[in-house]
Structures are given as structure tokens and as C-alpha cells.
């Protein structure tokens, strides 16, 4: 039983980190309609900034630098590239983002080389133990922080003028614009928020049980894509739910692989995508995505 609980908690805590990333994808999509494939490199960028600044300024100030850096780069990508697209359709923007991802990732890879940069987190390799279960302290903190962040996001979207404006802009940009909502501002806010979430996720994705910052972190961030898609492209709560589901199902598949040998080895790497496909077959709009109204 404690083994089952260990895998469940492993899965849920990792799932919440994936949720942070997936929510970033969803926020950029709702605020500017862009499929942001550069998000993985922004996650790596945030963690990289923390790692290189923490020896001189300390860990917590370095986290602020990482958050500011990732948010700033997000805003810049939006201001310089996305808003200046001659043909602002989602396909063009998605290809553009793939290009940005390659550029950012190449530069970060060049800087990191084959080193593993230590993150310098004060919780190191500490673990929290209860009822026979050992969970990395970093993951527990990540879970608590993610819950706080998601509560903050709910407040923002449900209770503030800016959040309501962002939702209106997402629902119908031209009409929202006519109602006096500044699309430039809601777009920039969305990209900045996604950057903040990316940097936070980067910190927890690279702290124990992961060893530190290596270029493969950007690959890990892509694990959040099935979470985002199965949650529904335009739903932040959907992204959170998707992340939790992907984390849980992956941990249980890996944990019970010896009982699942009929599925072949390495099924844990595939299961997020299998889950995504099953959900999309049943609910094409994703778990919590808004259904497109089609006039017939």
C-alpha cells in the first residue's frame, strides 16, 4: 500500500510541475492564440538564469532573476515577433515559435555544454518522510507552490479587471477591442505570466530528484504538451488537471511495469500520448476546453 501511495504522490507532485508548464501553454494560447512551441526553452532559460546568478546573489534573489528573465523574454517574443506577423494565423505563429525554440535552445546548449549546472536550492537532496513514504522536499514545495499559484491565477481570471479582460480578449478579440480592452496589454500580460510559470517550473524540474540544469530539461518540458492538449487548449484548469493525470498515469505505469509486460517495455514514455489520444477521441475539445460553436 505504501508503495502504491509512493508512486501516486510521486506522480501527483511531478504532475503539478507539468501543470505549471501546461498552464503556461494554455495562457499564451488564450491571450494571443499562439501555440508556443518555444515554451520548453523558456523553462530551460529560467532555470539557467537561476543557476548562473545564484553563486553571487544567493538562491532566492536568483529565482527572482530567473522569473523576471523568463517573463521578459516571453514579452519580447510577443512584442517583437508575434505582434509583427504579417499573416497572424496560428499556423504561421506556431512555425515561428519552433524557430525561436531552436535559436534559444542552441544558445543555451552552447552555454551549458556538457556540464550539469547545480541549481543551488537550499533544500538540496532533503526528503520529507511520513507513513513510510519518502518524498523529495523540492517536490513537496513545488506542489504547495503550484497550488498557491493556481489559486492566484483563478483569482486573477475571475476577480480582476485584467483577468476578465484577458478572458474577453480570448473569447472574441475584435469585440473585446471595441469594448475598450487593450489587446496589446492582455497579450503581454499573458506572455509574462507564462514566463513566470515557466521559470518556477524550471526551478522544480531541475532540483532534486533531477541533478541540475542540462539541455535535456527543454525536452522534459515537452512532456507537458500532452497534458495541455488533453486538458483543452484554452483552459488553465484543464492544463492543471491534464498535468496531474499525466504525472499520475506515468508514475503508475512505470511503477507497475512488471505487471504490464504485455504492453512492452518503456510504455511509461508513451502513456501520456495514449491518454491524450483516448481523451481526444471521446472529447475532441479536451477535458475542460471550450466547445467550438458551429453554426449549421
Amino acid at each position: 500500500m505504501s508503495y502504491f501511495l509512493t508512486q501516486v504522490l510521486n506522480g501527483l507532485s511531478f504532475g503539478l510541475v507539468l501543470s505549471l508548464i501546461a498552464a503556461g501553454f494554455a495562457i499564451v494560447f488564450t491571450s494571443t492564440g499562439v501555440l508556443n512551441f518555444a515554451h520548453g526553452s523558456v523553462v530551460l532559460l529560467g532555470a539557467y538564469l537561476v543557476a548562473v546568478t545564484q553563486p553571487t546573489i544567493g538562491f532566492w534573489p536568483a529565482v527572482l532573476v530567473g522569473i523576471a528573465g523568463a517573463a521578459g523574454v516571453g514579452v519580447l517574443i510577443n512584442a517583437l515577433l508575434v505582434r509583427n506577423l504579417a499573416d497572424p494565423n496560428p499556423g504561421t505563429a506556431a512555425i515561428l515559435m519552433l524557430g525561436v525554440d531552436i535559436l534559444l535552445l542552441t544558445e543555451l546548449t552552447r552555454r551549458i555544454g556538457n556540464r550539469v549546472l547545480p541549481l543551488g536550492a537550499p533544500w538540496g537532496a532533503d526528503t520529507v518522510r511520513f507513513a513510510g513514504i519518502a518524498l523529495p522536499t523540492g517536490r513537496v514545495l513545488a506542489a504547495v507552490l503550484a497550488i498557491v499559484v493556481f489559486a492566484g491565477l483563478w483569482f486573477l481570471f475571475a476577480r480582476t479587471r485584467m483577468g476578465v479582460g484577458m478572458r474577453a480578449a480570448a473569447a472574441d478579440g475584435p469585440t473585446a477591442s471595441l469594448m475598450g480592452i487593450q489587446l496589446a496589454r492582455t497579450g503581454a500580460t499573458g506572455w509574462a505570466l507564462a514566463g513566470v510559470l515557466a521559470a518556477l517550473a524550471g526551478v522544480f524540474l531541475t532540483s532534486f530528484p533531477a541533478p541540475g540544469i542540462a539541455p535535456t530539461v527543454a525536452l522534459s518540458a515537452f512532456l507537458a504538451i500532452p497534458a495541455w492538449v488533453l486538458g483543452g487548449f484554452d483552459s488553465v484548469p484543464g492544463a492543471v488537471l491534464g498535468g496531474l493525470l499525466v504525472g499520475l498515469v506515468t508514475a503508475l505505469t512505470v511503477g507497475y511495469e512488471s505487471h504490464l509486460t504485455f504492453l512492452g517495455s518503456g510504455f511509461g514514455d508513451v502513456v501520456p500520448y495514449v491518454l491524450m489520444i483516448i481523451v481526444l477521441l471521446v472529447r475532441p475539445q479536451g477535458l475542460l476546453g471550450s466547445k467550438e460553436a458551429v453554426r449549421v
Binding site: 508503495y3 509512493t6 508512486q7 510521486n10 506522480g11 511531478f14 523529495p136 517536490r139 524540474l205 531541475t206 530528484p209 533531477a210 541533478p211 542540462a214 535535456t216 530539461v217 525536452l219 522534459s220 515537452f222 512532456l223 506515468t250 508514475a251 512505470v254 511503477g255 507497475y256 511495469e257 512488471s258 517495455s265 518503456g266 511509461g268 514514455d269
Partner: peptide, 19 residues
């Protein structure tokens, strides 16, 4: 042998190690 297949993207081996 208990085989555990992973990819380079697997940087958290909590689930594998627990198993």
C-alpha cells in the same frame, strides 16, 4: 534482470527507482 527503458528526456527517475 528487471529492465527499465527510459529516454534522454527522463530526468526524474523517482518512479523507476521506487519500482
Amino acid at each position: 534482470v528487471i529492465p527499465q527503458e527510459i529516454t534522454p528526456a527522463t530526468t526524474d527517475l523517482s518512479a523507476q527507482a521506487s519500482a
